[in-house]
């Protein structure tokens, strides 16, 4: 455990030394928040819309921050593998999975910080969280888990391809996942059948639903259970993929 803490500390310090690796991601999330909130806020005036548009669009900014932050885990691993430091760490008595856990947990901390930052900006813009402080915390937890699910995916791609460009390209899978959903308007106002099908398949939809219910309408157990179940299921799947890839990469058999 101590080794993992040391390795997390090292990854966090490196992130601070290269702010350029996280700033664009924060900028994109804040951009979503400002541009869509001011440009599309009249959506909230449609009949039947509950809560504020800020509470509706904020999950998009949060998921974007979480998913972008998760890509960092893959990038860190690729850098370590490329410059040989990964091997140097494997030559210590450290449990081998710590070498992978370190950067992954570090990027989870970074992405959580980004999510909290985006949410604080939303509070400054006048957000009222319907489910209160505990609801706020649950949104952060959901974002963290969703980020970890993507960190697992990013680590899997990094360890399998060992190629920075390929791992970077793999993160573009995030885009359809964010946008093929009820991203900008509620379900009731979407008429395109294909988008409804895509949104139903897309797990992000359920994450958006859970977060929006907490932010805009209060406690909705069905939407929370579905959201957490989908998130945990997805995180478990990518976690297993990452562990499997890690075993190959650290044993090199």
């Amino acid at each position: 455990m101590n080794d993992t803490v040391l390795l997390i500390g090292r990854s966090l310090r490196n992130t601070m030394r290269e702010p350029a690796t996280i700033l664009p991601n924060i900028a994109i999330s804040v951009f979503f928040l400002f541009v869509y909130n001011s440009g599309l806020s009249s959506v909230a005036e449609l009949p039947g819309f509950q809560g504020t548009y800020l509470g509706f669009i904020l999950p998009v900014a949060i998921v974007s921050a979480a998913v972008g932050g998760a890509g960092l885990a893959g990038q860190t691993l690729i850098k370590d593998i490329d410059n040989g430091y990964f091997t140097k760490l494997l030559l210590t008595p450290t449990r081998r999975l710590s070498v992978i856990w370190g950067p992954m947990i570090a990027s989870a901390i970074v992405l959580t910080a980004q999510v909290v930052l985006v949410m604080l900006i939303a509070l400054a813009l006048g957000l009222k969280v319907a489910a209160g402080p505990l609801g706020f915390a649950l949104v952060v937890v959901l974002a963290f888990l969703w980020g970890m699910a993507f960190a697992g995916y990013a680590a899997f791609m990094a360890l399998k391809t060992k190629n920075a460009a390929a791992a970077q390209a793999a993160t573009f899978a995030f885009f359809p996942l964010i946008f093929l959903s009820y991203t900008f308007v509620p379900k009731e106002y979407v008429t395109a059948g294909w988008l409804k099908v895509a949104a139903t398949i897309n797990p992000t939809t359920y994450v958006f639903d859970s977060m929006r219910s907490l932010l805009n309408t209060g406690w909705d157990s069905t939407s929370l259970i579905v959201g957490f179940a989908v998130t945990l299921g997805f995180a478990t799947l990518t976690g297993i993929m990452a562990l499997w890839a890690a075993r190959g990469a650290t044993k090199m058999s």
Partner: peptide
Amino acid sequence: LQDVGLDPLMTARELLMLQTELFG
């Protein structure tokens, strides 16, 4: 090893201390 394994973002002392600590 033939290919050195150094994290370019860390200083010599940081690398040496981390490596030493990882050996307990």
